[in-house]
């Protein structure tokens, strides 16, 4: 079991607060290939604390790839080099002895750095609050499968709903566009019968707030899809473009 420890050089972005200038600090660590990326940072933080230094701020919660809290840019790639996983699911065995690893926060105007590797992703919440829900009376528990939905359609909706809102799409995009996230949230309802009543109002409201938050526009580089830990497809963006333009043409509301 006991594989050789990996000796790694880390260059980690340190930034005291939202308004201070940040820079990279160098650290050297020796870790087992079996540790996860975040455990490596935990160990490093332990040693920093023991030396009386301020630990590195980074976010995490579930540590099993479902909450979307973790999110670091590792060697230029959000969530690191392995496709379809989050930072917390990344293991050190994917690196080689002697490697230098650059660890940075997501960089986007709409995601200001709070401290070190932590960014403020309130922008996503504001978009969700603008329309990322359906309005129904809760009441009693409805029977399962009361409304028939074709399997392929429900699968598409589930694929879109797999988005954990981590923001890797924004981080990967050269324009810091939030289109993949927003389109996933729009699509998961647009595909299902329950989402129809508010379908065209929703897309307009969510895009409006998205634009207000200072995210960029999509240039269809598809970097978001390549880096998304949940494999959200850019066909969702196409669906949102379609719904948005259709909404602008058919909706009765002049102001949205």
């Amino acid at each position: 079991m006991s594989a050789e420890n990996l000796k790694l050089k880390l260059k980690i972005w340190r930034q005291k607060g939202p308004n201070s200038a940040g820079s990279f600090s160098k650290y050297e660590v020796a870790v087992s290939p079996d540790t996860s990326f975040l455990e490596m940072l935990d160990e490093l933080n332990d040693s920093l604390e023991r030396k009386g230094e301020i630990p590195i701020a980074f976010e995490s919660d579930c540590r099993e790839g479902i909450c979307g809290a973790c999110g670091l840019v590792i060697n230029g790639q959000p969530h690191g080099p392995v496709p379809l996983i989050t930072t917390c699911q990344l293991h050190m065995r994917n690196f080689k002895n002697g490697d230098t690893i650059w660890i940075e926060p997501f960089r986007a105007k709409a995601f200001p750095v709070l401290k070190d590797l932590m960014v403020d992703r309130t922008g996503f919440e504001k978009i969700q609050q603008a329309g990322g829900f359906i309005s129904i009376n809760t009441g009693g528990v409805p029977d399962a499968n009361e409304i028939a939905i074709p399997k392929d359609i429900s699968s598409l909706a589930m694929d879109a709903a797999a988005c954990i809102g981590c923001g890797a799409c924004v981080a990967a995009c050269k324009n810091a566009s939030a289109m993949l996230f927003v389109s996933a949230k729009v699509s998961q309802y647009a595909l299902l019968p329950q989402g129809q009543p508010e379908r065209y109002e929703r897309v307009q409201k969510m895009v409006k707030v998205m634009d207000e938050q200072g995210f960029g526009s999509c240039t269809n580089t598809y970097a978001c899809e390549a880096e998304c830990p949940k494999g959200i497809s850019v066909t969702n963006i196409a669906r949102m473009n379609r719904d948005y333009m259709k909404a602008k043409i058919i909706s009765k509301n002049v102001e949205v």
Binding site: F24, N75, G76, Q77, W102, R107, K174, A223, E227
Partner: peptide, 10 residues
């Protein structure tokens, strides 16, 4: 970003 990752994703 210090490391340009775009070569790998676009």
């Amino acid at each position: 970003y210090a490391v340009n990752g775009s070569v790998k994703n676009s």
